[in-house]
Design a protein around this nucleic acid. Structure first.
Lengths: 204, 204, 204, 204
DNA sequence: GATGAATGAGGATTCATTCAT
DNA sequence: TATGAATGAATCCTCATTCAT
């Protein structure tokens, strides 16, 4: 947690620090990210940095938290309708929210993706339970879908949850493939959902 | 590419260097991996290292190439039957080969996974065309499957290729989840393929 | 010397600052003692510190002075009887007073001892004339003892004064040896004085 | 312990490093002693320093060991005659050896004295058993003196050992008092021994 | 080809002190 | 008078790489 001194800062300076950190962590993995560069970009003294944060990790974790909060803003709208939507509607909305978040906040998305996919112990420490929680959430969705009748009860919910998460995480890469957007969000989602719903076996 | 001096080395010394490098890169991300540690583990002089390799990246890329070659050994058996197997048989064999590779070579698998998932620019440089090639391969498989009639022609082959790759990459994590194996390979593959083939919509 | 602002402070706040400083200087040598820690312990603003004191050294010297004053309280009773006691009675009382001071004020004693024994230039600056004065005092005592007839006139008073001071300074270490008290004060003093009076040559 | 690389150094360079370190540690307490200054004085690269030593403490401990070895050179001559000398002859020789060491190696003496007197935990760690061992040695000398008949059996040997050590440690300060030498070694020793042998009570 | 000492830019972090409010 | 954010030189230390032997 950043120290009080950080939160007492003027909004503009705090914003500069956050922006500099986001820039840095989007460009370099944690160990290569340089406090010195962040300091320079933010235009603060090195001593100040350590009056705001315990250390580099403290700042990194704060940025991760910001990312989580920001992502939640995108997801909240969907989550509130957890009970009124059926499974496939819900999944569509979730993927869509993820895409929108990635489009609006490409750097945050990059940092977040790097974190969740990385197998480094440091990253595992930081990410903590978030990945298991995400899987659990998908599994619950599937369970409910089975109960309501929309989802095939023959599937292994845990396994499918992992598959859906893997696909979810690959979406932002899909979007920026080759640095250009190939299709619009809706089209992308529709095509993905078609496959998820129906599989890829030829229908008779 | 390592220099000629490296390939002129006695097999045992070359082996020590490779083993040390694999150990190191499996334990640390590129930037944290230490040339000094590799040198010590391999029992060579630091000067020698730079007579074998341009720099750390040169060694890393060589290891990546070794991993690719090794993986090919596992895949070749499948690829040779590209024409005789139908799409789903092929996919099953590919996933299975991937699992076997991961089980037999956990360190290589770790290095490879870390590489392909990482969004770091450095890693992108190193991985080069491999990911696009993998996607392209899946896409071709799908095309052929459509032509042969087993695969639904309504799908977007490129998109599905990406999805299949994302799932493929998540497999080794599935296997080692919680440090324990939850189901046997066949069961895992079967359940995954069931979903891929049929989707998760309830059948009437 | 602390600034006027410090002496204008409420007694409670001044006391907090002094206590925090004593704590700190008893725990760390001057260079390692941290103004920041003192500030925190005392609950004052860092800016305030420099409105009370010139710098860290200023505070340190003030604490040293406090220690001197405190020690004088213990010695005054003895010094007042300078004329009525003979040399050995006087020495006994002085050592005893020193022991009592150390027992009652272990932190002050620790700071003082560290100061007087240290050969660091900084410490020499701070301690100034105090050590020469102490030696001078012992020397005068010896002179008077010789005149009165109790003390052997063959000794080199200056040298013996130094020896007596060296012994005096080692007393507090003796007391706390191994963190435990080995003998009571009187016994300790008696045994020391016996040696000082009679030396260690076997008597015929 | 310094690394092999240090001992493989040319004598001249090793000498420069040692001289620079002695200079530095004689001028500053451990925490204030600067690796950077040592590096500059010795004319080596900062990286080299850490190829020779684990860290600053490693170098410091090595210097302490050098001091011990050097002091032993001065004491060995005396110690070899442990059995042939009586207590007071022995004590005289020991003090004399100490004085000679201090005169010949003032910087080493300063470092050593600072170490043994300092109450800092770091210094205690480094000095380890050396002080107890010194006291023990004095105590044994006293015991033997009592058995042989030269030393007063009424004394508390442990206490006197501590007193003798305290005096021993104060000798080098005596010598350099006011930066000038007041008397020659023999005279100093004789006067000290006179007091130690006979005490300071007037003889009838 | 082998060696391993030498290099030095760069790393994160500390801390006494200043100064604007 | 009180505050506490700002400062930046200085701290120890790391590490990939070079180069003379």
């Amino acid at each position: 947690m950043p120290k009080d001194t950080f939160f007492n800062l003027s909004e503009s300076k705090r914003g500069r620090v956050v922006a500099a950190a986001i820039d840095e962590f989007a460009s370099y993995p944690f160990h290569k990210a340089s406090v010195t560069r962040i300091i320079k970009k933010a235009g603060i003294a090195s001593g100040s940095f350590y009056q705001y944060f315990e250390d580099k990790k403290d700042l990194y974790m704060y940025i991760i938290k910001l990312i989580g909060d920001k992502k939640m803003e995108y997801l909240n709208y969907v989550l509130q309708r957890f009970d009124s939507l059926d499974f496939f509607q819900m999944l569509r909305e979730l993927y869509l929210a993820g895409i929108r978040f990635a489009r609006d906040n490409p750097k945050l998305d990059a940092i977040g993706n790097n974190l969740i996919k990385n197998s480094d112990q440091l990253y595992k420490d930081i990410i903590g339970d978030q990945k298991p929680m995400a899987i659990h959430f998908f599994e619950e969705m599937l369970q409910k879908g089975i109960e309501k009748g929309g989802v095939d009860p023959a599937i292994d919910t845990r396994l499918v949850a992992e598959m859906l998460l893997a696909i979810n995480l690959s979406i932002s890469e899909l979007i920026y493939e080759d640095g250009q957007v190939n299709m619009n969000d809706m089209e992308l989602i529709d095509k993905m959902l078609y496959v998820i719903e129906n599989g890829i076996r030829k229908k008779r």
